[in-house]
Each structure stands twice: as C-alpha cells, then as structure tokens.
Design a protein around this nucleic acid. Structure first.
Length: 268
DNA sequence: ATGGTGGCGCGGCCA
C-alpha cells in the first residue's frame, strides 16, 4: 500500500466558513448536517453558549473534525473546527483581562485563524458600547501584530458591525444605531486598513445580501437583515480568494440560528 | 420609548 503524500506545509485550506450558531447545544444537529454537506476545511463558530466541560467534542470528532474551543456558561463562546489538527491556541487579546470568551486563535497548516465574537454593544452610548469600542481598539493592536507574524491570516466571525449601508436593509432606519454607528464602522475600517480584505466584497454580490435577521417580526422572510458576519483575509490570502457567499439554507430550517453561515473558498 | 422572538434557565439578561 502506498503511503499518502504528506500535506505540503504551505498549502492553505481552501474552504473556510463562519457561523454564529446561537447555542451549539440546540444547533449541533444542524452543524453536523452542514459539515457533511459543505465539508469546509475550517468552520469558526460563535455563541456556542457552552462551558468547556459540556462541549460536544466527541460528536464533532466523530464527524471527522478536530476542534478547539473556549466557552463559558450561558453567554458567548467560540470554537474552531478543522480537518487538519490545530495548534498554538490563543483565547485572549493581549492586554485585555476579560472573562468573556470571544476570541479563539488557532494555526491550521500554514493558515492562522482568528475567530471572533465581537461584543454587540447593545445601544450607542451605553456602557456595553464603550466596552465594544475598547475591545475593538485592543483587537486592532493584536491583529497588527498577528499580520506581522502570520502572512496567511484570516480574521472571521460575528463582528456585530455592518461595514456600510449596502450591508443594511434600511440604512436610514439604522443610521447611527448599534451595529451601524460611525465609530463602529471606523473601528472596522481601522482593521481593514492594517491589510485585511472583506472577502465578500471581492466579488459581485446580490443587492441586499445579509447574514443576520432578527427573529422578531418575520425578519428573515422579509429580508430585514444586516451583514455582520465577515471573513477578512490578509493580502496573500485574499489574492487567492475565489468566492465568498452567504448560505441562507440553514436560516430556513426549523428552529434556526438568527445568523446564516458565510463561506469563502481559496485556490491552493 | 416599547415591543416584537429566541436561548438560557426558571427571573431576568442578552441579543
């Protein structure tokens, strides 16, 4: 029997996805179905809402994925599933002493993955809004350092920021509201200006493409959404990006997450 | 300004 050739060390994973599942306990069957159908090389999850002792690692491993996670009870929680094993796991932003589990950095092959659940901010001017902006400022310093260290960096997750008016179903209604305020958008632009591309905007997209729809008021059926789930890629990685799309199918299921997965594919 | 829905967990917080 011939041995399979070893994976080339500089090969970048071709299919990378992000999905805010709003409770992995509830959504695990949907996640397992989606993995089987889409077979991503990396899937970053947010809002797992599970402490690590309760994380369903065995089910995910049985589906053929390695998994790293950083969770807490009830709120937040992030995980990265990968075909290849991950290493060099990081769960905190340097300089931010924060019990909230919102960050998971992981190396998968030559790729560096940074999975984020950016704070929501609740309302412009609130304490949580100040926390969000401070968190994003700390993140920018960390991303700058990560870019210097890892040429092939993907920063993905629920950013809780709609980058511009194209990403908002009703820009006038949302003007200066949470997820759309100028300060939040400026914080996101600062990240992009470090050398990241919003892969979704590398390609022509249908107008009114969103990744999140409020559960209330039949938001999904009326397409009253925002695009707040992003896959940002460093320049060498963005140069190889071939597609980025929102997969609305899981949002149509019974008992869905309020977010849909976003998927980017890369040439080898 | 509030409430609409959903998850967690069993009252109220968070999104």
């Amino acid at each position: 029997m011939l041995a399979l050739p070893a994976a080339e060390p500089d090969r970048v994973m071709p299919k990378i996805a992000t999905w805010n599942v709003n409770s992995l306990k509830v959504r695990l069957p949907q996640v397992l179905d989606w993995l089987a159908r889409e077979q991503p090389d990396v899937l970053a999850l947010q809002e797992t809402k599970l402490q690590d002792a309760d994380f369903p690692a065995a089910d995910i491993e049985a589906a053929g994925y390695h998994v790293a996670y950083a969770g807490q009870k009830t709120y937040n929680g992030v995980a990265v599933l990968s075909r290849e094993p991950g290493s060099a796991r990081v769960t905190d932003l340097p300089g931010l002493d924060d019990p909230q589990r919102r960050v998971l950095g992981l190396s998968v092959g030559a790729l560096r993955v940074l999975d984020l659940y950016v704070p929501n901010g609740q309302e412009v001017g609130s304490e949580k809004y100040a926390y969000k902006l401070g968190w994003l400022a700390t993140l920018a310093d960390y991303v700058a350092a990560q870019l210097a260290e890892h040429p092939q960096l993907v920063v993905l997750g629920d950013f809780n920021i709609a980058p511009d008016d194209r990403d908002v179903h009703d820009p006038e209604a949302w003007r200066d509201k949470i997820l759309c305020s100028e300060a939040e958008r400026a914080a996101l632009r600062r990240l992009l200006d470090l050398g990241l591309s919003d892969t979704f905007r590398l390609f022509e997209q249908e107008p009114k493409s969103f990744s999140w729809w409020d559960y209330r008021g039949m938001g999904f059926r009326r397409n009253l959404g925002l695009r707040i789930d992003l896959i940002l890629a460093s320049a060498p990685l963005a140069a190889r990006c071939r597609t980025c799309r929102v997969d609305k199918a899981p949002r149509k299921l019974e008992r869905p997450s309020d977010h849909a997965p976003v998927v980017a594919e890369f040439a080898d």
